[in-house]
Design a protein around this nucleic acid. Structure first.
Lengths: 202, 202
DNA sequence: GTCTATAGCTGGATAGAC
DNA sequence: GTCTATCCAGCTATAGAC
């Protein structure tokens, strides 16, 4: 039993470091927060960070490794409904909920920055994005076949644009303002068939 | 005349530093590019950067001070047409054109990051954003009165969402892919009055 | 396992030569 | 005005005490 306790304890400390680091990275940025600051915020000493993680980068990566299972679960849960538009909106709503976190813009910006510098992080992020992309694209494709969604839309590109709009919402996140109503309006209308079509799809 | 030449020369060097710095900041980030690297890329020596600019931050700020007059001019040029929707799309098109620059995501991300750290930069960015916001809001307001735009839309919030979608497009900019057709589709439909309205406006 | 101390390095900003 | 040389601060990562 002693071993289990130790493992739990170790896992708890790793978590504490990750949580503290996430806040600091979002507020000050990756390069501007030192390992010592993370350790202090987590209630540990500077050297301990490097006992639990090989690198400062590894701390950053660990924060986002949690998102992959969450994304998979979300896509699985809403992938099977019989109203593709409603399913897409449900996934968007769930993702946009995190927008209310005041740290959202800082974290997003830092991810984009670090993805260009850390190939291993890029891999982690790419997988999560791919899961979401495939989930959206499958729903769009289904909608175009049932006639609920404009058949002129390319499922892949449309899925990408749903993610683009979500990115914009995250970047401009404001805890005092719920973006979901406007997101729903934009996406509903993006998907709908309509007589007076302006702009092309390609 | 000698003085004029010197002034021109000095202005040219300032520009050279700004140009070189913009590329490096976008590619590697603000904190990861040293003053020495900027100087080298601009064909000058390390100390010179601090002759032309008080700070490394000042170099960064200078890059974005150029955008304010550009934004004013853009808004002024399209503010007076008799088709508000077309004017909005024209402004969006003009802004989105810069999306084709491979440095766009890097620059955007770096601005967001640094705005939180440098109040003077925040001021510069806020002014440019405000000019654009007011331009869009005035056009939306006019459109709601003429009936070209859904009167249920709040001009301020709608303007903000046009900027949010643009941010998303910038963040996901890809030199091989023109975002303008899809941007036009999204914004046209966001603005249009429509019978089968889902989501609320507030 | 976790802390303290520190080695080793990098980079912003300056001082003084030219 | 511009360059070279350099000072000093601050950071990552490690080594070794406990």
């Amino acid at each position: 039993m002693a071993r289990t306790v130790d493992h739990e304890r170790a896992a708890a400390r790793r978590e504490a470091i990750m949580r503290a680091a996430a806040v600091l990275f979002a507020e000050r940025g990756f390069e501007s927060t030192s390992a010592a600051e993370i350790a202090k915020a987590a209630g540990l000493s500077s050297g301990s960070v490097f006992y639990y993680f090989t690198d400062k980068r590894a701390v950053f990566r660990a924060i986002f490794e949690q998102d992959l299972p969450t994304a998979r679960e979300l896509v699985a849960r809403h992938g099977a409904g019989d109203d593709p538009v409603a399913s897409i909106l449900a996934v968007v709503d769930a993702l946009a909920a995190e927008t209310m976190d005041p740290l959202a813009p800082g974290i997003l910006v830092e991810v984009v920055r670090q993805v260009g510098k850390d190939p291993e992080l890029a891999q982690v992020i790419a997988e999560t994005e791919a899961v979401l992309h495939e989930g959206f694209a499958a729903l769009v494709e289904r909608g175009t076949r049932t006639g609920a969604i404009d058949p002129d839309l390319d499922p892949g590109e449309t899925a990408r644009w749903i993610q683009i709009v979500l990115d914009g919402a995250f970047l401009n996140a404001d805890p005092d303002h719920d973006p979901r109503p406007m997101l729903r309006r934009m996406i509903t209308r993006l998907l709908s068939r309509q007589r007076d079509d302006a702009g092309d799809t390609a």
